[in-house]
């Protein structure tokens, strides 16, 4: 196991196209003042580092995060807490509730860990294969550091010391009707727990409050969804009635809490194949998220607080 961990970290760590050149280290501070000319030069020559997963830190820092930061700071006014529970320099599995029709919750969690965590950690999410089938989205997801939700990728990233994000409710969570808001859906088969056990990475139960209200889904046009090959087609008070305007998310007040880590390092690796152990830990994670959601909802003054 120790052997494969060191291998994996070498694979992920050894990523620059120019091994001679020092790796580009970009912190959140630096990103505020990225030189646009240097950025454009790198894009034209193709000389920018990416890792084996296709994570492009320069593009993420210079293009994606600046687009998302206004949502984080000014629109949703996200308050992140419990960041001290996310390790500064080792692997961890962030497991959170999923909602809001479009995956703003995942993106805001990424901004929280990048901007508000003292070590400016990059969140590496596990995404559905629909993401990697879809033009443009597939490309952006890889460049932002995300990969397919599968055992192999989860373990490879965790073993390399990355913070991995998983939303185990999947489409059941993100595509649920508004009347079921803040009701956690089924957590799948607990595959994420197995990955954490095999790599000894702590699980960080994470609660997100606010995402439920950005696109209140009053109905699901499922025949249309089927025709378009989508998991659901949302009808909200503003979409599709107002057309593209309906795509503007409502400015709900958000809170993200990273909860007390659940350690997996004392669990023997072969327990990863024991369904009872997996169910048990999955339940523990679910309970913790559920309790945090209740607490955050009680603190939040109003939906748009």
């Amino acid at each position: 196991m120790a052997e494969s961990i060191s291998q994996a970290s070498r694979r992920v760590g050894n990523t620059g196209p120019q091994p001679e050149a020092p790796r580009v280290v970009i912190s959140a501070e630096a990103s505020e003042g990225t030189d646009p000319r240097a950025f454009l030069h790198d894009r034209v020559t193709g000389d920018y580092p990416i890792d084996d997963f296709g994570f492009d830190p320069e593009f993420t820092e210079s293009v994606l995060l600046p687009l998302m930061r206004p949502f984080y700071r000014n629109w949703f006014r996200v308050e992140a807490s419990g960041l001290e529970h996310v390790p500064a320099d080792s692997g961890a599995l962030v497991v959170a509730n999923h909602s809001g029709t479009l995956a703003f919750d995942a993106i805001m969690t990424q901004v929280a860990l990048k901007d508000d965590h003292p070590a400016h950690r990059n969140l590496r999410m596990l995404a559905a294969n629909l993401v990697f089938e879809t033009p443009v989205i597939a490309d952006l997801a890889r460049k932002a550091g995300h990969t397919l939700a599968c055992h192999a990728d989860a373990e490879r990233l965790l073993a390399a010391g990355e913070v991995v994000g998983v939303w185990p409710e999947g489409f059941k969570g993100i595509g649920k009707p508004f009347r079921e808001r803040y009701r956690l859906q089924r957590f799948g088969r607990g595959g994420f727990v197995a990955a954490a056990i095999r790599t000894g990475a702590p699980i960080i139960p994470t609660a997100i409050v606010g995402a439920e209200e950005i696109y209140p889904m009053i109905a699901n046009a499922s025949p249309l969804a089927r025709v378009l090959g989508l998991p659901y087609f949302p009808i909200t008070p503003t979409f599709p009635a107002l057309g593209p305007l309906g795509l503007i998310p409502l400015p709900s007040k958000w809170m993200i809490h990273f909860g007390t880590p659940i350690s997996t390092s004392e669990i023997p690796a072969d327990a990863a194949d024991d369904p009872m152990v997996l169910f048990d830990i999955t339940d523990q994670v679910r309970e913790s998220i559920s309790a945090s959601i209740a607490r955050l909802l009680a603190i939040r003054e109003s939906v748009f607080g």
């Binding site: 990523t15 620059g16 091994p19 894009r43 034209v44 020559t45 193709g46 990416i50 084996d52 296709g54």
Partner: peptide
């Protein structure tokens, strides 16, 4: 060979 290159990077190179 170690590491990866995207098709866009390769064309730029």
């Amino acid at each position: 060979g170690d590491g990866v290159i995207t098709v866009t990077q390769a064309i730029r190179h």
